[in-house]
Amino acid sequence: MRRQLALSIRIASIFMIILLGLPLLNYALPSVANLPVFGFTATWLFLGILFYPLTWFLSWLFIRRSNEIEASLAADMSRSFADVSGLPLDAATPAEPTEER
């Protein structure tokens, strides 16, 4: 849970810096924000179009890392469970087999 939370917070921080940084950039450096790019202003192009793929990338990154954490956690716990009880995991719970076995 702690590793999951750390991952969530890490990705949320990257996202928040971009999300909350953009208004600040617009405010502090309007000449950069309003630079013409392909007929748009830079800030419109970013917020109106490019922002969406960015959120997809971050969510894809999160899901990949998060599933890795879960898999390794499940592996650790099933190993320690087997150590304590001497039983394989599926003797105690009806769970699906983990990749470990």
């Binding site: 499940a74 099933s78 769970a95």
Partner: peptide, 8 residues
């Protein structure tokens, strides 16, 4: 809330 499904 947090344990992976594998653990049931």
């Amino acid at each position: 809330l947090h344990a992976p499904e594998e653990l049931g």
